[in-house]
């Protein structure tokens, strides 16, 4: 309770001093919009639909790319963990590529795909794929081998073992990797949207960039707020339930 009060108090003070600073006239209103202006922009753009359509476009890109990243990352990670040759080839490649900040894929994506949705998708997939692959492979290799032996004595073989032993045993790592992949994908998508104007859809990143070009600081700050909120919601909706489950079942936090 005290913690909640201190959090609320902190944000109230923050907003009030922001408002006070913008009213003091010390700073140009172009550079420091008042929180009320930001709120007004949010209200307006929500009413005229700009905000929704930009959010929709961005989320579609994110989810499609993220989905593809998982679709390939998880199985490849499982294979990498269980096969020596895959580990020495693909595993090594993933480890190298993973050190590359995912924003760095943007120039390459533009050259390969031009100003298209494919470029966006590519950037998001690259952000997701490698960290998910590595986390999956780490998770499988961290599994105590005795689980496999126990499963075999109980008659588990082949696919049953994959789905009922190996996958659940590495789940805490896997979700850790999915969370990291999500963060990478989200960041690189924003970078790509800011760099790249494509006519098939205006995402949040583009809305942010237009704000800059129009010197509309209220728009810039408002879009930034939306981006933060989406990040927080994703964490709460997508990952927190899993982490709570691990905490309850394994008696640990998420492993990573």
């Amino acid at each position: 309770m005290i913690r909640a009060i201190s959090s609320i108090a902190f944000f109230v003070v923050l907003l009030l001093s922001w408002e006070a600073a913008s009213r003091s006239g010390l700073y140009s209103p172009v550079l420091l919009p008042s929180p009320l202006n930001v709120l007004e922009y949010l209200w307006q753009s929500a009413l005229d639909g700009t905000l929704w359509s930009a959010t929709l476009v961005t989320m579609q890109r994110l989810l499609a790319g993220y989905g593809i990243g998982l679709l390939f990352g998880i199985p490849l990670g499982l294979l990498t963990a269980r096969s020596r040759i895959m580990q020495d080839t693909l595993g090594l490649l993933a480890l190298g590529i993973q050190t590359l900040p995912s924003v760095c894929w943007v120039p390459l994506a533009l050259l390969w795909f031009g100003q298209t949705e494919a470029a966006m998708l590519f950037v998001v997939v690259m952000g997701t794929l490698w960290s998910v692959l590595i986390a999956t492979s780490d998770g499988v290799r961290a599994m105590p081998p005795i689980y496999l032996r126990a499963a075999r004595t109980m008659g588990s073989t082949g696919l049953h073992t994959w789905f009922n032993v190996i996958l659940p045993a590495s789940l805490p790592y896997l979700v850790g990797g999915m969370k990291q992949g999500w963060a990478f994908a989200w960041r690189s998508l924003m970078a790509a949207e800011i760099f790249v104007t494509i006519l098939t859809g205006f995402g949040l990143g583009q809305l942010l960039q237009y704000g800059r070009e129009l010197l509309a600081m209220d728009q810039v700050v408002a879009v930034m707020t939306i981006i933060i909120v989406i990040g927080l919601l994703a964490d709460r909706i997508l990952f927190s339930p899993w982490e709570r489950f691990f905490h309850r079942r394994w008696g640990t936090g998420s492993v990573k």
């Binding site: 105590p144 005795i146 032996r149 126990a150 004595t153 109980m154 659940p168 045993a169 394994w250």
Partner: peptide, 12 residues
């Protein structure tokens, strides 16, 4: 059936 030294139970 086997019972191992470590319990080998599945934590999930």
């Amino acid at each position: 059936m086997v019972m191992f030294q470590e319990h080998a139970l599945f934590p999930w």
